[in-house]
Amino acid sequence: MPLPDDHGGYGERLLGQSRPGEADRLAALADACDPATVAVLDTLPLAPDSRCLDVGAGLGTIARRLLVRCPQGRVTAADLDTRFLDGTADPRLDVRRLDVRTADLPAGSFDLIHARNLLAHLPDRERVLSRLVGWLAPGGFLYVEDVSFFPVDSSPHAAYRTLMRAGLATVGRTVGSDLDGWARSYPAPLLARGLTDVGLRVRCAPVTADSPDGVLWRRSLEQVRDAVVDGGAATEREVEEGLACFADPAFTDLAPALVAAWGRAPRS
């Protein structure tokens, strides 16, 4: 049956930490995405005592990387559900259960804010982005990263394309996510908020049966398959045919793009 209109958001109905297998999915996400993210973060001129905020920290892999990068600094790892973060023991790491939509943090609190796969899932993403910019210290950096599905639209594999698009439609309808246009608009939202030294990176990785992105998207689609079928975005047969692509050793395609943008707050 269709999902009710008064649905919960991301992490409540879909892909939340309480769902079976979510830790494995987040580990797959880190395997697929962390290397490219870290490669950019390592180029930013952060002071050793920088104050960092990782929003939607998940397993905390980026937060722990920032602890190494800023050995005299502090890192706040924030998420709606911190069950995968609570066991992290480091006096410089502050684990906080935090809703970025309503949190009351002082202006100028952080020298770096990292938010991956967050804004695209928030219907009020424009307002939240402005809040993040307001939390930057003068000269601080904001790094945001989100998915855009445009490479999937030209896929020559109909079963893969159908299932990926069905997953997109389900997440969009259930959560209010924009996995098409939001990240594709980067870096314009950062420029519009006065950030400088703005950069852009687009990562479009291969999907195979054993590639990091193949594992990530297979796990993600398995998490939402019931909602896809119940909501009428695809039939059970279409879901099975699409998932079979991820088990086929001869299958190769492109993952959705991961678009990153970063910029620096004015110093005065």
Rank of each mutant, 00 (worst) to 15 (best):
A261R: 04
Q223P: 10
D111Q: 14
D226S: 09
R267K: 15
N117Y: 15
P2W: 12
G199E: 09
A158W: 07
A137W: 12
C33R: 08
S148V: 04
R173Y: 10
V171R: 00
L3T: 14
A63K: 03
F110P: 06
Y160A: 00
A158T: 00
E22N: 15
A255W: 01
Y10Q: 14
F251E: 05
A107L: 05
Y143A: 14
R92F: 02
L98C: 08
L29N: 11
R83G: 10
D79Q: 06
A23T: 05
S154A: 15
A28E: 10
A265L: 13
G231A: 09
D94C: 11
G56Y: 07
G87C: 11
A63D: 03
P156C: 00
R161H: 07
R97A: 15
A159F: 04
Y143E: 09
L190N: 03
L179V: 05
P2Q: 13
L142M: 06
E240V: 04
R127P: 00
T208F: 04
P156Y: 03
F110Y: 06
A205K: 09
L122T: 09
V55G: 09
G199W: 02
E236M: 00
Y186F: 14
C245M: 09
V198E: 11
P212H: 03
R83F: 12
G60T: 02
L179R: 08
S155H: 09
R127N: 13
S155P: 02
V95N: 05
T162L: 13
G172A: 13
L80I: 03
I113D: 05
G199R: 00
A244H: 06
P2Y: 08
V147T: 15
V95F: 11
L243N: 02
R101V: 07
F110K: 11
D5Q: 10
W217I: 01
L119N: 04
D34K: 09
D111I: 12
G214F: 00
G214M: 02
H121C: 14
G181K: 13
A261G: 01
P138R: 09
D99F: 02
A257M: 14
R51T: 11
S155C: 08
A107V: 07
L119A: 08
L191V: 12
L80C: 07
T76E: 06
P45A: 10
A120K: 01
L136Y: 05
P256N: 04
T170N: 01
L15E: 03
R125L: 04
T196Y: 02
H157C: 07
T43L: 10
P106A: 14
F84C: 11
R96H: 00
P4L: 14
L168I: 03
A209Y: 01
M164G: 02
H157N: 02
G60C: 09
W182K: 11
E22R: 14
R92S: 09
W262F: 05
D248C: 03
R69F: 01
D99M: 07
T174P: 10
W135A: 01
V202D: 05
R116I: 07
P266L: 12
L105V: 15
L93C: 13
